[in-house]
Simulated scan of single mutants.
Amino acid sequence: MKRLSIIKQPVLSVLNVHLVDYPSPSNINYFWSFGSIAGICLIVQIATGIFLAMHYTPHVDLAFLSVEHIMRDVEGGWFLRYMHANGASMFFIVVYIHMFRGLYYGSYASPRELLWCIGVVILLLMIITAFIGYVLPWGQMSFWGATVITSLASAIPVVGDSIVTWLWGGFSVDNATLNRFFSLHYLLPFVIVGASVIHLAALHQYGSNNPLGTNSTVDKVGLYPYFYVKDLVAWVAFAIFFSVFIYFYPNVLGHPDNYIPANPMSTPAHIVPEWYFLWVYAILRSIPNKLAGVAAIALVFISLLALPFINTSPIRSSNFRPFHKKFFWLIVADTLLLSWIGQQPVEDPYILVGQCASVFFFIYFLIMVPFLGRFENYLIHYKTR
């Protein structure tokens, strides 16, 4: 009776439906834990970001010193800084695995088109948030990365220069730029929270996918206590992995030039973004024309958004799609190759390799996905005759 009275409360009833009694396919594996881990990463980033903002000064003369003040003088400041900086990398690792899992098991297929599209929007918001956050320490790579990336908007015909001036708040990356980037970096995580709530609502409308890719409406169990325990194991393993970076390798995922104060008069030998942007950066710089490069970046996200609508396979899971399974691992390898190319000098043979890898990226999403669906479907009907 006590339990019944609790779940009659409006807020607790919603939590009970979506977090306790939510029916989940009985055969989902640990790859389905990365969605909840992504939620934990988002909470960690928001919490640490709020406390860091209490001591950070968004001014070009004081930003770098305020970060050093946090590291040296604030009680536990080093822990907050390292957790926030490495937490961004952990967030992207988890989200990339989460998306590749969806790609492998066909979680984007009908009727989950909206779910996938919202996930792509969340990825784009994460990239924007992480980029402007990378500018805030106001180190060498922060300043020059902001200068290079924001100037890409100048390639847009007619309004490009006006957009760049608006982004900078003047005629160069300066104090106005840092202030508006700080404001946006504080605001956008809460936008991501809103998008994540919509993402969960879209997921719970049709239920979770499963490794077999079949309709499992008749074989579901409650999220609690069955998958709570499985997720708890994944959370602990992730916490250990995260802690290794915080305590033993806190700077391994960052760039050493960002520990040098920003100097507009000294250009770094090689300007690179954070590692989680490298695959996009490699596609951008593989095209010598600036406007075409910006268009290619836009096409990356258009391709991801279009994926559910150009998919032609009635079978979701790649476990039962032998040809797609091979191409899936090729696109994984291609993305890793692009990430490696993105940190190499802009010279041969890296330019040629990057161009080939970029071409394959678009061939997979725009050509192979619809073609393989029809081809595998044809083989199935041919063999069953």
Rank of each mutant, 00 (worst) to 15 (best):
S89G: 10
V95R: 03
R101T: 14
L103E: 05
L103D: 02
Y104D: 00
Y105S: 13
G106V: 06
Y108Q: 15
A109Y: 01
S110N: 10
S110P: 08
R112I: 10
R112L: 07
R112F: 04
E113G: 08
W116I: 14
C117R: 13
C117V: 12
G119Y: 07
V120D: 08
V120G: 08
I122N: 01
L123Q: 12
L124D: 10
L124Y: 12
L125S: 07
L125A: 10
M126P: 01
I128Y: 03
T129L: 13
A130K: 00
G133R: 04
G133Q: 00
V135S: 08
L136H: 02
Q140W: 04
W144C: 13
G145E: 06
A146D: 08
A146H: 01
V148D: 00
V148Q: 04
I149V: 08
I149F: 01
I149M: 02
T150V: 12
L152S: 01
A155Y: 05
I156H: 11
P157I: 00
V159P: 05
D161C: 05
I163M: 07
W166V: 11
L167H: 09
W168F: 08
G169P: 00
V173L: 06
V173C: 10
D174G: 12
N175C: 14
A176N: 05
A176F: 02
L178G: 01
N179W: 02
F181C: 07
F182K: 09
F182Y: 05
F182D: 00
F182M: 07
S183A: 11
S183I: 06
S183G: 10
S183N: 11
L187W: 02
L188G: 00
P189V: 13
V191T: 10
V193N: 03
V193E: 04
G194K: 11
A195W: 12
S196P: 03
V197P: 01
V197R: 08
V197K: 03
I198R: 05
H199Q: 11
H199E: 11
A201P: 00
A201R: 08
A201I: 14
Q205S: 11
S208N: 13
G213V: 12
T214D: 13
V218G: 14
D219N: 09
D219Y: 10
K220Q: 15
V221C: 12
V221N: 03
G222L: 02
L223M: 09
